[in-house]
Design a protein around this nucleic acid. Structure first.
Lengths: 201, 201, 201, 201
DNA sequence: GAGTAACCGAGACGGTACGTCGTGTCTTCTT
DNA sequence: AAGAAGACACGACGTACCGTCTCGGTTACTC
């Protein structure tokens, strides 16, 4: 939320309508999800679609950025659950889910917004890091650390760089391959095997 | 160029001024390089700075996108030259240059524009792939293939995925690390050693 | 007013600023009065001088015409008061005032606009007829009818044509005489005597 | 013509195309006659319709005004011929023709342009006076002077004012009557009788 | 018959104004 | 005091003409 509620003291006057808040966020998300470019995602259009006055939006968020940040937060994609049988299996599953998600329209939208607007709106990048990147990184780090602990991976593995290599390889391949190249079905496996090949104990 | 010249037939009327074209591109680049966000990069501002009428811009490019694409093309960052002594040295140098470039303001701007606008403007991503990604990929691929040929790398190395892992690790680390983490000085080495460790013959 | 208020029902939302409306009209009048041709009387210039956004103008008037019509209406030149001693005296006075007015810059401007734009903007002619021509015609008609009633004029006088002859003679002489001819000082008397000479009882 | 030919000395170079000149004037007249407002009568539109470059127009006339003036000149409405039987008959015929003309579309256009643009373009008024007003005035003056000479009119008639009263009455009635009033069929007779009534010897 | 000089059409040039749209702020009445 | 409605000043959008300027090509006269 853009405006914090200080303590539990009840402010005087009419309380803010939660319905309005929801309608605004929903309208914003709908428009993002419909592929409306971020350029066309005007405050006026959101207000119109939400059936809400512009004031009601600006009372809550002072920028389009802050609104988008909050809309983004409500889209929190589910974090993959990993069975934990082996490092290789877990990493493959992690990357597979990542690849799958990149096809799902809603996730695509989050990614697009996050990537395309993060430069314009620094808060947005920060928030994206916080709600999308960090939780996933925790999951992946846990997998690798478990592998070190279990002796499946060498004890001197550079965990941070390994994570970057795994996620980065998938993202780079997905986004910057030549358009006419198709995305290999076994990409997750190939990345995993390549990177883990030197890390086994 | 936005308008192609079909053959050598001369169109009637006054030819378009190359000077104006250059002034427009230069103005656009300057504004991008000064950190002017793409949002503030208005056609009117470009026209004003270039000392040119708006019509002269719209006569050549029908969109801000097309103009930015062409401006981008003229920014072609230099491709790193690699000494070729060993795969490890060349890859480290390649990644180091990549890391250095990401600090240089002009390159930063290209990257920012390319990343942030590529979703809004599909042509832009395509052009960026063509003039920035592809040439660098060729260089890196040559290094790896030379390594395979010389026996420095195993003969069954998955070259494409390796390239993605190398570049992706660097990009991911650079862009999505936590803000308070500092970028390690020996990042290029660490990435290289991690990924090549399993690939040596 | 461009937009009529139907009844007393209050429209929702912020009401239109009467101050802005006045500033716009004033700016338009000032520019007209300063001799700014109607061609140079651009909406942007009016907005600038009135310290008002263009939208605020277009919200009220959809055309330059409608704005000019309303500006004109607010310029209503004063109608001459006639002492009523005799038809001849009153008519002479009426025509003299008409001649005087044609020299006063503000009245000149109304006339110029009305004459020069009435063909382009039909509403303008209608409005001019209504607020300038008609009231004066009433005054003049009253004079002539009083003359008939008092026996000063013949009872079969063609009042409408007489009025047209009086006003028309003055206008025609004023506008279409050769440029090097000077306007005679006793023009009002000469016209009056000429036309009334055949109408005395 | 806007540019004068000094003497008969032949200027060097290719002579100006009379065909182009005619095409330009014709295009302008056509557009005026079609009721195209003077505002829409753009130089570019004239050039386009005439199949001529803009330069060819600007080489001959430096303004839209000068072009319109020349176009106007080529529209010279025919001067009424008067049988000369009696002053009354001639004046009635003169005014009738004037009234008829005001209905003919081409004449209407001349009038409209002349009236509506004469304030913006002073040359235009001057030219209109010269080619339309003055010749007609000569005809009318001749009629009145012949009447004085023949004894039909009093010898002290104020000829100039009489002419203004006759023409002015007709113009005023035609232009400024209330819209719902119809133009009386016998208007020319009524004006004539009214004004001449006091002038008979 | 080769120059030469002004013409021709086409159309690009730097400008100015157009009328529309979205921004973030404000002002009104209603809940 | 928050709600919706909508007006406010501002500024960019993309379009249309303005009057000027190049282009390659076309006449007509002069040498």
């Amino acid at each position: 939320m853009a405006t914090e509620q200080t303590g539990t003291v009840r402010t005087p006057g009419r309380p803010r309508s939660e319905k309005a808040e929801k309608a605004i966020i929903d309208a914003a998300i709908d428009m993002i999800a419909e592929g409306t470019g971020v350029a066309e995602l005007s405050i006026e259009a959101i207000a119109g679609r939400a059936g809400v006055g512009k004031t009601t939006i600006y009372r809550r968020w002072s920028n389009k950025e802050e609104l988008v940040v909050d809309a983004l937060a409500s889209l929190k994609a589910p974090i993959p659950e990993l069975p934990g049988w082996s490092v290789r299996d877990d990493v493959i599953r992690y990357l597979s889910v990542m690849q799958q998600e990149s096809r799902h329209p809603r996730t695509r939208c989050i990614m697009n917004i996050a990537l395309s607007e993060s430069e314009r709106f620094p808060h947005l990048a920060e928030r994206f890091r916080e709600i999308v990147i960090r939780p996933r990184r925790e999951v992946l780090r846990a997998v690798l650390q478990r592998g070190v602990a279990s002796g499946e991976l060498r004890s001197d593995v550079d965990v941070e760089v390994t994570m970057a290599a795994l996620s980065g390889a998938m993202m780079f391949f997905t986004k910057w391959r030549d358009n006419d190249d198709e995305l290999p079905a076994d990409l997750a496996e190939r990345i995993t095997d390549l990177i883990l090949s030197g890390l086994h104990a």
